[in-house]
Nucleic acid binder design. Structure first.
Lengths: 205, 205
DNA sequence: TTTGTGTTTAACCAAATGGTTAAACTACGT
DNA sequence: ACGTAGTTTAACCATTTGGTTAAACACAAA
């Protein structure tokens, strides 16, 4: 089975890499099998030899990428850290993840939009993210008067919005701020600090 | 020419309405001319009689919708209102616009993502949004020590993020918060207040 | 009644696309 | 040397899809 592994690892992986890029750039509808084959440096026949159909290949890519999209997020929010530290870690790590996968958010949200039920199931299976834990944590601090009144889910939505949106609207952001790719990435790095500060300033008393 | 007007207005408009819906739901790639014809209650031949090609029809819809996406925003930010009032009007109106066109953000950002240069040109033509005006306004207040230090463009990005994102991730948001369409819309209405407060709390001293 | 525009019907075309197949070649382990 | 899995080549198929065309029909204005 060593031969299998060796050649698999190179050919199958080349296909997966190519498919990832093509699907992320063009979406399921816009992607062409021929383009994937070309980018992988192999031919259509071999493509179908490994992954029987476009749908099969797409599902493979989608589920793989979807994992990244819901990152350690859950873990962080479930941890026992103080709220401000949770916020900082959460947003900082999320922005890092997106910086390393700039097309990720667009890809995932888009496919969800096209086919909500199916895609959400592929991401979460049956279990929902444990938002209640955060709700409790926030509610407790609000009650103690340690932070300004806000609902947990709203804080979550705000944090995620601030992290993800600039990547979703990246071409627009770059156009308006006249930044090139490099500068945009630097902007996002700085943003890790400013945006955390923005959120904390908003809720701290 | 009255006949033209009369029949035009009903048939052409039916097509435009149908096209808008189909394009917004499926994107340029995912949309089928036949589906548009069906939804409009007419046939493919008539479709091409009015709009010669898919691209022509798409361009028509896209430019129309793109106007809504960049709403009175510019006007508001250019006005002479106090900053906090600007913020409130801007975000409140933006959320209203999106509430009335829930697919708008997804549609526009998506097509921009697929073809940045072309689409941005269709939206803005040659002129860029006058972000400098906001930069100045914010910088002045920061210097006077009336608000916490923040860059104008960053404040803008944050505002837009907070307004748009929930609509972009709507299926996900609804899944996580267990809300139906009605409840989601109510959420967005409340959000007009909470999110404005969120931003103001963050920058005010 | 005639004429022209809007509209339908239905057949048709060419290109793109996902997918299949069979034959041949390569290379490596046995 | 043999066999097997990986790989290429190239032809091929069925379907979808954007788009066209021609003939007929409806109907209102002239």
């Amino acid at each position: 089975m060593d031969k299998e592994l060796k050649s698999d690892k190179s050919a199958e992986q080349k296909i997966l890499d190519a498919a990832k890029q093509i699907f992320m750039e063009n979406g399921l509808d816009g992607a062409r099998m021929q383009d994937i084959a070309d980018k992988a440096g192999i031919n259509k026949a071999l493509l179908h030899y490994y992954f029987r159909s476009k749908d099969k290949l797409f599902e493979r890519i989608f589920t793989e990428e979807a994992q990244k999209f819901m990152p350690k997020v859950t873990t962080i929010m479930l941890s026992e850290l103080p709220l401000f530290e949770k916020i900082e870690k959460f947003m900082s790590e999320y922005i890092d993840t997106l910086s390393q996968n700039p097309l990720l958010a667009n890809f995932i949200l888009n496919e969800i939009h096209r086919n909500p039920k199916e895609m959400i199931k592929k991401i979460w299976g049956s279990h929902r993210p444990p938002i209640e834990k955060v709700e409790e944590h926030v509610a407790k601090l609000v009650k103690k008067g340690e932070i300004r009144p806000i609902k947990g889910y709203e804080l979550m939505i705000n944090m995620v919005s601030l992290c993800i949106f600039p990547f979703l609207a990246r071409p627009m952001v770059q156009w308006i701020t006249k930044t090139n790719d490099d500068e945009f990435m630097k902007m996002m790095q700085q943003r890790k600090k400013t945006v955390v500060q923005f959120v904390i300033d908003s809720i701290k008393k």
